[in-house]
Design a protein around this nucleic acid. Sequence first.
DNA 1: AGATTCACG
DNA 2: ACGTACGTGAATCTT
Length: 874
Amino acid sequence: MPRMVILDGNSLANRAFYALPPLTTADGRPTNVLHGFLTMLFKLEQEQQPDYWVVAFDKTKATVRIEQYAGYKAQRKETPEGLRPQFDYLKEILTEMDVPILELAGYEADDLIAAITKQAEAQGMEIQIYTGDKDALQLISPKTNVYLTKKGISEVERYDETALWERYQLRPLQIIDLKGLMGDTSDNIPGVPGIGEKTALKLLWEFGSVEDVLANVEKVSGKKVQGNLKEYADQAILSKKLATMLTEVPLEFSSQDFVFRRAQGVKVLPVLQKYDLKNVTRLWLERHKDDDERVTEPSESALGKWPQRQLSEEEWLAQIKEWETQKNPITLTCRYEGTGLQGGRWLEWGVAVQGETFSLTRAEVSEKVCQAWLDLMGNEQVPKTFADSKTVALLLANDGAELKGLSLDLSLASYLIQSSRTKFAPLDLVKEYFPNQEAFESAADEAGGLAQVAPRFEEDIHSLGLPSLLHDLEEPLSLVLAQMERQGIAVDSEQLIAFGEGISHTLKELEQDIYGLAEETFNINSPKQLGTVLFEKLGLPAAKKTKTGYSTDAETLEDLRSVHPIVAKILDYRQLNKLISTYVNGLLAQAKEGRIHTTFQQTVTATGRLSSTEPNLQNIPIRLEQGRQLRKVFHPTEPGWVLLSADYSQIELRILAHYSQDPLLCESFALGQDVHTRTAAEVFGISLDEVTPDMRRSAKAVNFGLVYGLTEFGLSRDLGIPRKEAKFYVEQYFKRYSGVKRYLEGVVTQAKQDGQVRTLLNRLRRIPELMHSNRVQRQFGERIAMNTPVQGTAADIMKLAMLKVAEGIKPYKADMLLQVHDELLLQVAPEDLESVACVLKENMEKAYSLSVPMTVECKVGPNWYDMKPFHLKQ
DNA sequence: AGATTCACG
DNA sequence: ACGTACGTGAATCTT
């Protein structure tokens, strides 16, 4: 007898979701259902060897049953946030595996299962139903068995007529009567109040069915039960109707639709890898190790290789002209020489256009072809796709050429889709959609590969609502960043050396003093040796510990200052040593021809901020005077020009005000008040002029902490006050600023539902930590959820401002040099200072309109240290 | 490669 | 009873 296996997709997915720990992919997409379901599926396939099989899913938009009883499922819980997306993933995988899926608008899996069962029985099949839902027991017949999941998901219990009788002493159809009487909270079937499973069973054993019970209601023992049965007779009948699985589904299926087919192993691997399903992949490979790859149908998920054409000198010129006229999108990769980008030189271009690829090698073509090529790169009308447009822009700039017509940057696209990604080389980008792809042999192949994934990236960008963020913000910004990097900032190496020599001198003295006080020489830079000296030899009280031993960080040492004179020396040593090694030596090593060119990373941070490397010019000392002096070595590159800086005042708190619409916070900014003083007044319940500097300091720390996801611990540590006091501040704050509290709670709730948060410009960050079983991890996720929209929106706004400023200063003698998160640094010719400062301030303040005003403060000076406030004339 | 420390917003 | 403020990069020591 042919055997058909029917799986209740919804029920099993639900069981898997609750039975398994919250597993996720590396980027945080939930996958526990996939593991559970597929493991069970493999086991079942092996043990039962079905001839036919199918997985049924709900398509619940408008259920037939809703018309019958308005309350039906009305109270059913929303699908949990971690489960919902997994249905789509699961269907995607099942489709790849050639496992038939059945769903029908307006019907639940239950009803489809009942209908298929009936038809399969008529065709003389043996039927096995796999589900976690006891409702299905009503379908049991001599030909049909039901397999109910026991704890977990891959363990099942088989029910045939005999087993059902042994368990409940009921016949299959009486399951409907059972539900009619006892109801089902999960399906919101009401049943009869006061009747649970035990009473219902007793009644059915005695009378047989709901109708029989009601007909003989006077004979029912128990006053209360009898009363309820009388009162809720209609409800009992209705409940029975609701519990009945519909077999009347307007769908004819041929058994051919459900034939068991064994998908070829390799075809399924990419999708399993896409969801990081390591165990499932292992199981799959085990089962399919004998598959013959040679007979595998050409897989949709393998990257095709586009043919490469070799062009002669004349053909190149003609081809480039053709591309200029046709304006078809072209995809490019670039091989280049040189470390980094300063002076880097392109060697070869891989080109993919319309299903063909080309390779243009500098050494093999004439100067004329090169020039034609550079013109093509500068042709705004020809749309171009790159893996990394900033690098390309810099390489072209080194040839005196410009990059125009940038239509898609795949690294930026990939970053916006998945900000946690770390690798953006062309091969990594291709592997995103074709995990099996091997290294490309040529630049041409590489371009061909990129051209084939480009549409996939665009689809994902589109479906996540990111096209504008990508095309209108990040992509144009990459070209602005390229200009800034290329421009560089001037540093006076001799001044830097002199600065270092002064410090070195003090450092040597400190070193000797420390050795003297310790009565031995040791490596002060080694936390391990330092810990031994301080806490063992000198017997100082050890407060904190790290994973590996004593903690010797500044915070710990600060508390020991008064205990031993060596401590202060060590703190000084550390500070100066940092200046020497990271800044003096670090910057000297990077200075070329009097300039430093940082690299702005646009695809690194989780929040959308930029970062700066080799060297990092976003963390040049400023807080302590000694370090701040270092800023004197940063000058304009042009003689006579000045540095002009502009920084956003309280941008993150303003964004918090905008998001939360808290009346007090909004008012504070609308009135142009000092926000920390106002906060202090609110928290301490006093007037603005009664606020002491210490109160303001506390309020400032609260405001600071808010943006990070305020904790009592963090605040108490920051202010050096007891937890209790910190708790008081937090409570008082949220009492007064209840809108902020409501907003922050709302963000976390929403984030838990979506598994992600977004900024004002729609930038997305997934937060897998929110679903961790570990409480500490989860709370971390909650703080990320509170911080990211604020920090990320600030980053969005600054990026927007940079685009406008870059455009606005074009008529003037001015260059943008650096961005330090909420500050821009420019160099300007003195005659254009007033105009440029105006452009700068205006564009930053009006970059994006919030419900509170944005203010920007400008400073000007001959170097990055001596910056004085600059006020516009009007 | 990972941990520690410290510079910035 | 836990173990915490958010986001980075560089230098250094240790394994």
